[in-house]
Design a protein around this nucleic acid. Structure first.
Length: 667
RNA sequence: CGCGGGGUGGAGCAGCCUGGUAGCUCGUUGGGCUCAUAACCCAAAGGUCGAAGGUUCAAAUCCUUCCCCCGCAACCA
């Protein structure tokens, strides 16, 4: 019997023929965060992922490559295994459906269902596409053409084995209704219940004749057939438990705590898998959670658009932890989200580099400079005694410890984004208290040594606790923080099993300041390759191009997108002569310009005061945007914008080589 | 009448079920600070909540109609 303390989480097994993309990474990273979290909490975790290796496409692709399907799978499997390694995925097992033991389990279950008369043979007829070698339903086939290759389909009939799925409909509805957390999130659950109101559940074809498909698991009761991929694939959740660990562990982990899936395969899990389990007299999983999908730069990810995101390239540029953080922080788990490098860079900079990374950096520097690199010691009750003075320190500390009590609730409801927001906010609290106490000033006053030490010590404690919180999401960073603080920590221990306390640090710890946790991501230089740029030539060199490939591919949109000449002409550029220039009072970089456009004068406020003195601008001919909507800057209206080179800081004004009349159009 | 999702300050979103001072993150602007990764802290500006009707003492929130955007598949999580 499974104990309350066990936690069994799965990802779907991914199709080996797929190229790993952001979607695979998403599911797997989410599962990893949960697995790591519950291990920290001391639960007995089993985290499974793996590969689905049977089926038509593998068979065809292998044939095309002229190799054995198994060899073909062996060649592809490392794509996933290596990616998981790079993403710090801590799966306990990795199943491949071509494992011998898996095949045996599948066959055993098939035989059991057959013996119980829950599988029967019948003839199936439908629309068959000879080219694609597959059946289509009535709905798919429009105008007698295959929806995939657009060739005519034939009415074909063949004998197959069917699983009596239909008879479980009422039981399944009842189960979903009475188990509120079985299908999550809520909208998906409602969707499923709605689905059953209109659909009559039919029986499920679970075989394919070997004449059509041979790369699969043979039916134990009829060697002319292999089993349908879904039966093969779903059973992985159970078969793993029989052979992936040293001891058979179905009793230890089944039923699964969570099957994490994408919303596209929710029905398969909620209906096929559930009814299979019912037929086998096995308990159903506690929860099937369907998460959302990612679009890329606002568009659906697709091969034809050329915008499929390769996680490896993201890791190269941003690092695994920033990527992991982004995936779980950006969007509520369960909803769809949009991925862009810009958004990832923004998150990385603001939350990680400027937030936690900078906090660690400033703390370590102050300890290095003022305490000889040794974390300063303070009397244990110092903060309490001086509670008035250290209210902010206490606040930061209490908020941090309070979070510990709420972690479970967040993780049980999969609110990763909210939780991460809270964690980052706690880091911000620490920044606030540091600022209030101004340790750089305390350091100059020998009488305030104790206060200085108290503040720095508290900062270290906060960082140390923060590192525990972020560990499930950013394991490498968590370890890195601890190492730089000079603390040796074994994260494989259940560090959050006991209630988190504010315990004094051991004395005399020497910090080990190292590189920044998250270097700021600078915007890409113009013309730089985007991660999803398709570097392949239009005509692939491998394999012969299919007729469909003759269509010209539209190139992936460059960033920023191109504009038309019409759009450009909306922007009215003109030369202007500077009549007067003066600094805006109390402003660091604003300069108020009066410029002449020949027959018209304009007042323009420009942020160029860091680069130019007002006097240097007098009489110069510059270029302005003449039809920009006026705006007020520090209460002064600006009726246009001057053009200048430079990004965040102005490097130089745009002027003109030849002398021209003020107000001349610039194009 | 195909189905579904959505339209809220410059951007991205929350709030809508269970009507009652419109909130968050980023950005912008000003100020502070100088320990820190041009960082951090404080403050401010900025929204007639897609449109029009209706219900109500009161509507972003409920009802009706309309408009606009985005998905609808096999690279798919």
């Amino acid at each position: 019997m499974r104990s309350e303390n066990s936690f069994y989480i799965t990802t779907p097994i991914y199709y080996v023929n797929d190229v790993p993309h952001i979607g695979h990474a998403y599911t797997t990273v989410a599962a990893d965060a949960l697995a790591r979290y519950w291990r920290l909490r001391g639960r007995d975790v089993f985290f499974l992922t793996g590969l689905d290796e049977h089926g038509q496409k593998v068979q065809q692709a292998a044939a095309k490559a002229g190799i054995d399907p198994q060899a073909y799978c062996d060649r592809l499997a490392p794509q996933f295994q290596n990616l998981w390694k790079r993403l710090e995925i801590s799966n306990d097992a990795f199943i491949r459906t071509t494992d011998t033991q898996h095949r045996e389990v599948v066959q055993r279950y098939l035989q059991r269902l057959f013996d119980r008369k829950l599988i029967y043979k019948d003839s199936y007829s439908g629309w068959y596409c000879t080219f694609d070698e597959r059946f289509w339903t009535e709905k798919d086939v429009s105008g007698g053409l295959c929806p995939d290759c657009k060739r005519p389909v034939d009415r074909l009939s063949e004998d197959n084995y069917f699983f009596k799925m239909g008879q479980y409909q009422d039981r399944l509805i009842e189960y979903i209704r009475t188990h509120e957390r079985f299908i999550r999130p809520e909208p998906r659950r409602n969707e499923m219940l709605g689905f059953f109101q209109t659909q009559k559940l039919g029986d499920l074809s679970i075989s394919r004749p070997k004449s059509r498909l041979c790369w699969g698991i043979e039916l134990p009761f009829d060697k002319n057939y292999v089993t349908y991929v879904w039966f093969d694939a779903l059973v992985n959740y159970l078969s793993s438990l029989e052979y992936q660990l040293p001891v058979p562990s179905v009793d230890r982990y089944w039923p699964a705590s969570v099957h994490l899936v994408g919303k596209d395969i929710l029905t398969t899990h909620a209906v096929y898998w559930s009814t299979i389990l019912m037929a086998l007299d096995l308990p159903l999983p506690d929860m099937i959670f369907a998460h959302g999908w990612w679009t890329v730069d606002g568009e659906k990810m697709s091969k034809s658009r050329g915008n499929v995101v390769d996680p490896n390239k993201i890791i190269d540029r941003f690092g695994a932890d920033a990527f992991r953080y982004f995936l779980l922080r950006e969007v509520p788990f369960g909803q769809d989200g949009d991925f862009s490098e810009q958004a990832l860079a923004r998150r990385t900079n603001s939350d990680l580099a400027n937030g936690i990374g900078n906090l660690l950096s400033r703390t370590l520097t102050m300890i290095e400079r003022n305490c000889d690199g040794i974390i300063p010691d303070v009397p244990p009750d110092f903060l309490e005694r001086e509670s008035q003075k250290y209210s902010l320190v206490r606040f930061a500390k209490e908020q941090l410890l309070l979070l510990d009590q709420n972690l479970d609730a967040f993780m049980e409801t999969f609110q990763f984004n909210d939780l991460l927001l809270h964690i980052v906010s706690r880091a911000s609290d620490v920044d606030v208290f540091i600022d209030k106490h101004e340790p750089w000033k305390l350091a100059k006053d020998p009488d305030k040594q104790l206060e200085l030490h108290a503040v720095l010590n508290a900062a270290v404690q906060c960082l140390s606790i923060l590192s525990l919180y972020i560990y499930p999401f950013m394991p490498t960073t968590a370890k890195n923080i601890r190492e730089q603080l000079g603390l040796s920590t074994d994260f494989s221990l259940p560090l959050l099993k006991e209630k988190l306390m504010w315990e004094p640090l051991p004395k005399g710890i020497k910090i080990r300041k190292a590189n920044a946790l998250f270097p700021r991501i600078e915007p890409k230089p113009q013309g730089a390759k985007s991660v999803n740029d398709n570097t392949l030539p239009p005509q692939s060199t491998t394999g012969s191009p299919s007729p469909a490939a003759a269509t010209i591919q539209t190139p992936a949109p460059a960033t920023p997108p191109q504009i038309t000449i019409d759009e450009f002409q909306k922007i009215q550029l003109k030369t202007a002569k500077v009549l007067s220039a003066e600094r805006v009072p109390k402003s660091e970089k604003l300069i108020k310009l009066n410029v002449s456009l020949g027959n018209e004068e304009r007042q323009i406020v420009a942020g160029i005061g860091k680069k130019y003195e007002p006097d240097a601008l007098l009489g110069k001919t510059i270029v302005i945007v003449a039809n920009l909507k006026p705006a007020k800057l520090m209460g002064i209206e600006s009726q246009g914008m001057v053009l200048a080179a430079g990004d965040s800081d102005v490097r130089g004004l745009i002027t003109i080589l030849e002398e021209v009349e003020p107000g001349t159009k610039v194009k």
